[in-house]
Design a protein around this nucleic acid. Sequence first.
DNA 1: GTACACATGTTACTACCGGTAACCGCAGTC
DNA 2: GACTGCGGTTACCGGTAGTAACATGTGTAC
Lengths: 224, 224
Amino acid sequence: METTTTQQEQGDPRRSPDQRRSADRRRRELLEAADRVVLRDGPQASMNAIAAEAGITKPILYRHFGDKSGLYRALAERHTDGLLAALRTAIDASSDRRERVEHTLDTYLAAIETRPQVYRFLMHPAEDSHHSEQGFDVGRHTAPLLRRLGEELGTVIAERVDLGPGGDELARIWAHGIVGMMHGAGDWWLSERPCSRQQLVRSLADLLWGRLSVAEDRPGSPRF
Amino acid sequence: METTTTQQEQGDPRRSPDQRRSADRRRRELLEAADRVVLRDGPQASMNAIAAEAGITKPILYRHFGDKSGLYRALAERHTDGLLAALRTAIDASSDRRERVEHTLDTYLAAIETRPQVYRFLMHPAEDSHHSEQGFDVGRHTAPLLRRLGEELGTVIAERVDLGPGGDELARIWAHGIVGMMHGAGDWWLSERPCSRQQLVRSLADLLWGRLSVAEDRPGSPRF
DNA sequence: GTACACATGTTACTACCGGTAACCGCAGTC
DNA sequence: GACTGCGGTTACCGGTAGTAACATGTGTAC
């Protein structure tokens, strides 16, 4: 067999006490191998490839993760947790609201800029092949990352900003809208790079600050 | 067990006189069959299923559309054109800017509300299985529909709103941000239905009108 | 020591997918 | 007739997710 794995198995013959830990360790090793493959081959990496990278064969992967979407979910959770943590600290770093917004936007954009493969993987989740029986579940389109982001941001807004009666609902709406804006603009920016990151952050913050509503009409604006 | 046992054996004597059916007609028929299947089975409908629905077999589909992504592109173009046309008229319907924004948002949301399958298909494009040789093209994540929407809205904003020097770039940034906001919030709303469409439209317009920036801090807001 | 249970791993398979080669039969036209 | 183009098919290829069955080591009970 091929000795492709980077870290050699520690050759540890005594495993009587820590069998449970061994399973956890193994699982983490498999996840790391999967990570390497997914980041190299894209989200449609095959289970065979992942198994080969881990130095084992498919059925073991299935024993650990159930199916492909299970593996991908586990993989996505790790990265999502990381990004969420970064965003939480960003949201708490400043006291001025505008600064907070800009800082958060910048953190997100920096993340997707420095590791676009991770980003792409998180946005194109499992795409679970076996359609769930009854025709077409409308829900569950967006990547779970965006949902979680939206919900977290919603609670943050709701508990920090006074929006009057019905403010919680409004906060959630805004949160999902803001996350969508961040995602959409970030995705476009990442692929076209039309400006600097700072420029993008400022422009989006300006948009959220209502500059669109106060700008003047263009003199010869077509009304066709 | 599925192959060849389906109903495609219709003797079909009604084809002798009028073979005037040009390739275009055939193509449109195939597209309509594909539409039916995709709207029934979701975006991962198989070519076999589409061919069966059209009463023919796979190779004919491939002769007409090249490959699966070709078929899906043709399919997506139809729907995209329809939605874009609706949005264009919505954007021109009112003179007041706020009304225009609300009207446009509402048109988009109404579209995805009344035909969520179409919407889902447009947002999860081909996902072309054969990864394009060189590792991992970072660009081309988002559905083409969103890109087109963003670009069109960008030109509309640029030509109607006076944003000063560098306004065109700013308009494009805002446009992609707004489209992302619309998409993200719409997707979340569609799957959770936390409020009425009108409520969502108003809230998003409020967000764009800068209400977030002028709201008061909550008294006991945690600063942890 | 032997027997059992269990975790870890393998090979070899099914069922299906996108895509293609090769062939078949029927129009029309010299 | 023969020859060509076209709409159609069957039968295949390579690759995918997922599984069954079998092979091992390893710790524990008797």
